[in-house]
Design a protein around this nucleic acid. Sequence first.
DNA 1: TTTGCTCAGTACCGTACGGTACGGTTCTCT
DNA 2: AGAGAACCGTACCGTACGGTACTGAGCAAA
Lengths: 213, 213
Amino acid sequence: MNAAANKLEEQTLTDRQKAVLDTALQLLVEGGEKALTTSAIARAAGCSKESLYKWFGDRDGLLAAIVTRQASKVRTPAHSDEVVSKEQFVQELNHFAQDLLEVISGEVSLALNRLAIGQASKGDDALGRQLLEQGRGRIGEQMTQLMAQGAKLGFVKVPDAHAAYQILYGLVLKDIHVRLLLGATLKQEEADFKSAAGDAVSQFMQLFENCTK
Amino acid sequence: MNAAANKLEEQTLTDRQKAVLDTALQLLVEGGEKALTTSAIARAAGCSKESLYKWFGDRDGLLAAIVTRQASKVRTPAHSDEVVSKEQFVQELNHFAQDLLEVISGEVSLALNRLAIGQASKGDDALGRQLLEQGRGRIGEQMTQLMAQGAKLGFVKVPDAHAAYQILYGLVLKDIHVRLLLGATLKQEEADFKSAAGDAVSQFMQLFENCTK
DNA sequence: TTTGCTCAGTACCGTACGGTACGGTTCTCT
DNA sequence: AGAGAACCGTACCGTACGGTACTGAGCAAA
């Protein structure tokens, strides 16, 4: 278990181990947590259960490794270019909103969130914390930063950059995330992410656009 | 199983059976789905497993019965009074927003949503549908109605009452619901539901207030 | 009292899972 | 070549759960 814990912290994973985690994630996406048995993972990944326990300690360690593995694969969209015009700022917001909708409604994101929520129902919020920090946390930070930049340049007038980000988040997602987690399918107009993102951003700008020139 | 199915549809439940369902719900809230074994329910409710299966068919039937039972207990706040003034309309919105925050963050709501999400991860969205229709559906209908009334009287200018309701929903909850489902605890300012509801409603009014008199 | 019904309590069965142990194979290092 | 580690495949163990069967108590009707 010591070796396994170190593996998780230092994130020094063999290519083989990464491949196993990817296979496990695929299994999770396809069949939910119920399908994610250690035997099934070993079978699908072509490794032995003994190796799984050697590498990841126990089943919970494996689940945590899956989450961190996926989080490490998330690339920040690298739109860190300087924002120079209000049009560009709005365009960045649109880009962000559309990205958010696409990520949140993706099968992988839904499966991981369902997994973490299942763990939370057992009183263990470790996975949920990890998901919030490494998943939404990063994009949130980046967004908060963009928001602060927009405020500094006078495009928007917001008292608190992070609060503004949260409001945009709400305008974009509404109750879509939870509905998807519950297994619902989006209505036609909701599935048009580009249009939905545009609506949300224009509402956001209407709220916070700097009218004092 | 026939008798059980009829029971669920016609909702003709003995007081004894209702008590059993309430006990089961309490068990679910306390320990999550893992703790909701048939043996544990029978023990806690002081009935036999055989009776459980006789009444509810199987475990899934029992879970569904718990959800419908809880939904039947939800009372509509009965604010069906006519809205006569804009101030009253805004006050109704505030009341709604605060109620929403309180319900959504309640232990019972969280436990039921987690349960349904767990089922959805197994490919069964029956509980989720039930939760959406009977839980959020009702309050949504009522809210949409209030919104339409406000529009008719010229307090707000919204193209679609239901869409407006969704926007208010997003402004009120932001990402709070999912974070709670993941096991997070609210920040201090988020836990002040009255204040948070006021902010959301004022933002909503800023978006849709009828400026054409 | 006798008959029959309901239900609590318990014992039981089959299955499936998490976790471990072991034999055999491949690869690496010396 | 030979030793040792890593690892696959499989068998195995203990446990816990869903679901069923049985027993006996309480009770109502005849």
